[in-house]
Amino acid sequence: MILFSGCPGGGPKDTQPNWVTCPWPPDFLEVLDYQWNGVAIPFWTQEAKFARDHGVKLAFEAHPGFIVYNPETILKLRKACGNTIGANLDPSHFFWQGIDPIAAARALQGAIHYVHAKDTRVDVINTKVNGTLDTKNYGDVLSRSWVFRTCGYGHDEIWWNNFVSTLKLCGYDHVLSIEHEDSLMTPKEGLEKAITFLQRVVIREKSGKATWF
């Protein structure tokens, strides 16, 4: 099952999420302690047990705005709540955070439950001015620091070759699920282009026994 971790408020009486992005002022550390130890870990421990009892794995998509947003926080929740919890590795959310999804796949070895195939184009000019935290509408492509793109329109085939190869090396040889959120293409065109692109990238055959060593 693919899901998000959610983001608790900053305290028991809060009604809105509170995403902490830095450790100062120290109030933020108190918020993080409450969110993780007071809410997220107890909640997801119970949910993970229910999922495990029913033969279901929980694949968390790391997404900024939630408490699980990078490999470190995925592994933190997994360590606290058990191996039923793992990653839905979506490279698109890592690109714009400055995370290398290939390095992330290696860090998440053994904990990758599912993979989304979605690309991101980081606008070098806008990022130099405003950084990558961007709340402008996704349709405002020219002004945004980054936008989601169809596979191949943010990173080239060589990158995707390396990504797929790394997934295989790390023990993941399963689905690449195309997710379309490209503001410049219709869902039909984006899906068709992604399929054509990924057909050249996916490794279909088992490597078999090597004869050269």
Rank of each mutant, 00 (worst) to 15 (best):
F94P: 00
G110N: 12
I112L: 04
S92W: 02
F95Q: 13
G110K: 03
N162D: 11
L77D: 13
I67G: 12
A80Y: 02
K118F: 11
H63C: 07
T73P: 07
G86C: 01
H113N: 03
T166F: 08
D173L: 00
Y114C: 03
I102P: 09
V175Y: 12
A80R: 10
R121Y: 09
W160A: 12
N88A: 06
L77F: 11
D140P: 06
G98V: 09
V175I: 08
N88K: 09
E189D: 04
K79Y: 02
L89P: 04
K136R: 12
I125L: 14
A104S: 13
N162S: 14
L75G: 02
I67Q: 13
N70W: 13
L89M: 10
A105E: 04
V147F: 10
C81W: 12
A87S: 03
F66T: 14
I102C: 00
V115S: 12
Y69T: 04
C170I: 07
R149Y: 07
T84C: 05
L167F: 12
C81L: 15
L169R: 12
T127E: 11
C151N: 04
N162K: 11
F94R: 03
H113G: 00
G98A: 15
T166V: 14
N88G: 02
S92C: 09
I102F: 11
Y138Q: 14
A103H: 07
R144I: 03
S183W: 00
E189A: 05
A104I: 11
A105L: 06
L184M: 03
A117S: 00
E179Y: 03
V124R: 08
R121S: 05
M185E: 09
L169A: 00
C151R: 10
I158W: 07
Y138H: 07
H93C: 06
A80P: 11
F148P: 00
C151D: 11
D119G: 07
P91H: 14
F60D: 01
C81P: 14
L58P: 14
F60Q: 09
G131P: 10
G65R: 01
C151T: 13
V124F: 04
P64S: 13
G110D: 00
D173M: 08
W159F: 06
P101D: 15
C170Y: 07
F95T: 07
G171H: 04
S145R: 01
H155D: 15
T127L: 02
N162H: 12
L169Q: 13
A117W: 06
W96A: 03
A59W: 09
T166R: 10
V124W: 05
T120N: 07
L58D: 06
